[in-house]
Amino acid sequence: MPISKTTDYLPWRDKARSFFTGAAAIMPLTVAVLPWGVLTGSLAIECGFNPGQSQALSGIVFAGAVQLAIMGMIQAGVGIGSILVSALLITARHFLYAMVMRSSVSPLPLRWRVALGFLLTDELFAIVHPGRLKHFDRWYALGGGLCFYLGWNLATLAGIIAGKNIDNLDALGLDFAIAATFIALVIPSIKTTPLLVCVLTALTSSVICEILHVQAGLLICVPLAMFAGFACNKVMEVRQ
């Protein structure tokens, strides 16, 4: 029986403890994305969305990079086909996350799969993936996911209210907050040589793609970096 099933029979006290442990685990990441959330809300207002639509971007799309990309495109009057293709390119990494989480989440009932699927962001993945969490716990994942959802949406709301009142919000270097968060997530995970190879490959190839203005850079760099790490893993296995 998969370990995740056993939490079904735990008393509520233990479920609540898991829930709040998950919320506590994601709290640093939630705080770290607040500036980015505020930026998202105020940019949506500047792009001409009404407050309801601006909040819905965070409330139903719930994907920072996708939100930032489509706001500009909708404002520019780009067709829905192009918008969906761009969103697909940016969101494609979630297919990878879902595949990693498959063994933990697929035995759960549908309502859990829908809830955890909706909440599966970079940040939630960072705290629940098998490399980080030895025994998957659905309540831990739900606590983390909901805490992050709440934080992201409250930050967006703050940005909507602030709206145009803040001048040069995007000149505050909030994009550095994104980079700093991701660096802070990646560095502690580099525990082996293959992981280092993977990170360095992703770093080099993504910078090269950006300089060459490759549109779907992520779709090239990410598989390349994953295979580099994997190949290194294989070479080291053979040597042992």
């Binding site: 595949m99 990693v100 498959r102 993504s206 910078v207 992520l218 990410v222 970096a225």
Partner: peptide
Amino acid sequence: LSDNAQQLLAFSAPAVLTAIAAPIVFIREK
């Protein structure tokens, strides 16, 4: 998923996060 596929997927998070962060850090004015 085979063992190899699982091994490969374990590299997805560091790969994606690095590939998003690196251009922000290293590229100024293209």
